[in-house]
Structures are given as structure tokens and as C-alpha cells.
Amino acid sequence: MRYIIPVTVVVVLFVYGLIDCIRSEQRDVRTFPKAAWVLIIVLLNVVGVILWFLFGRPQYTETASVSRGGSSPSRHVPSTYGRPTAPDDDPEFLRNLALNRAQKLEAERLRKLKEELDAREAKLREEHPNDDTKK
């Protein structure tokens, strides 16, 4: 009976730490890859969760820039606290928009080239119908 509260605290801490690890962004996780942290938490239980909170959990700070590849990642938190920024104010959104536009243009260019190639092949088959039997 006297172990109910400590066991409950340990189970809640374990579940919270595991879910927190699983829901974290791969690029924000520190020290080890995310999959390694999940294994550490599962294998070491409470010690793994404590290690996760100390050395692996992302540190979200209130900065205006997003650091990528650093040892302590930060996430953009708008000064309005919770209100989203406009898409035209977000450089990452604009970069993605330009990249999507370029990818669509390239896909259209490749589609047209394929149509031209198919038309040329059809024309060659019409001009030389017996060439297919020689192969």
C-alpha cells in the first residue's frame, strides 16, 4: 500500500518521457538520434527518462531565429505568444514556396519532353513498321 504513490510517479514519469521523446522533432533532439533515445528510455526506464530530460530533450528558447545543426536547437516563438506569423513574414515558408514552384515547373518541363519523345517514337514506328520484328 505504501508503494502505490512512488510506483505511480515512476510510471507517469516513464510514460511522459517516452511520449515526449517520440513526439520531439528529429532535428531538435540533442546528443543522440531520436531512435537511440527511445531505446535508452525503454531499456533504462527512470534513469533513461532522467537522461533524456538532461541531455536529449530539445531546448526551446524564445529567439527570433531558428538554429539548425547546432548543439542547442531553438525554436521560433513569436513575440505575440501563440499568434501565428503571416506566411509572407516567414522566410522558411517563402523558401518552400519557391522550391515548390521550381519543382512544379521542372515536372511540367519533363512531362512535355516525355510527350515529345513519345511522339517521335510513334512517328519512327510509322515510318519503319518492320524494325520492331528484327529485334
Rank of each mutant, 00 (worst) to 15 (best):
S79A: 14
I4A: 14
E121P: 06
E116K: 01
E25Y: 14
P58I: 00
T133V: 10
E126T: 12
Q103P: 08
L51Y: 03
K34N: 05
L113Y: 04
V10N: 14
P87R: 08
V15Y: 02
L110R: 04
W52D: 00
L94R: 07
A35P: 05
S65M: 10
V10K: 10
V29R: 00
P58K: 05
E126S: 12
F14A: 00
F93K: 02
R57W: 00
V77H: 12
S67E: 13
F53M: 07
R68E: 07
P129E: 01
P58W: 01
Q59D: 06
S79D: 15
A98T: 03
E108L: 14
S74V: 07
F32P: 09
V15M: 02
R111L: 00
L13G: 06
S71W: 06
K135S: 12
A102W: 03
L117D: 10
V46L: 04
A98Y: 01
S67L: 11
I5D: 07
D131T: 11
I19V: 15
R109T: 00
A122P: 05
A64E: 15
V7T: 06
L13V: 07
S72C: 04
V15A: 03
I40Y: 03
L94W: 05
S24C: 11
K114N: 09
F55D: 05
L113R: 05
A122M: 08
L44N: 05
V47E: 14
V77K: 11
V42D: 01
Y81I: 15
P6S: 14
Y60V: 13
V12Q: 06
V7I: 11
E115F: 10
A98D: 03
L54T: 03
Y81W: 15
E92T: 13
V12K: 08
R75D: 08
G48W: 01
D89Y: 04
D20G: 06
N45D: 10
Q26M: 10
L51A: 10
Y81S: 15
C21Q: 07
V46T: 01
D89H: 04
Y60F: 08
M1T: 15
N100D: 14
V38Q: 02
P87I: 08
E92A: 13
L13P: 03
R95L: 12
V66L: 14
F55C: 05
A35W: 06
Y16I: 05
G69R: 04
D88A: 08
R120G: 10
T133S: 12
I5H: 13
E121G: 09
L39H: 14
V10C: 12
R125K: 08
D118Y: 10
L13K: 11
V46M: 02
A64W: 13
A35C: 07
R83W: 15
S24Y: 04
Y81M: 14
L124I: 09
W37F: 02
V49T: 01
D20Y: 10
K123G: 11
R111Q: 03
V38Y: 01
D90A: 04
D20T: 10
I40H: 02
G69S: 02
V47M: 09
M1I: 13
G70I: 01
F53V: 05
P91K: 00
H128W: 09
W37L: 01
A122V: 07
K134H: 10
K114F: 07
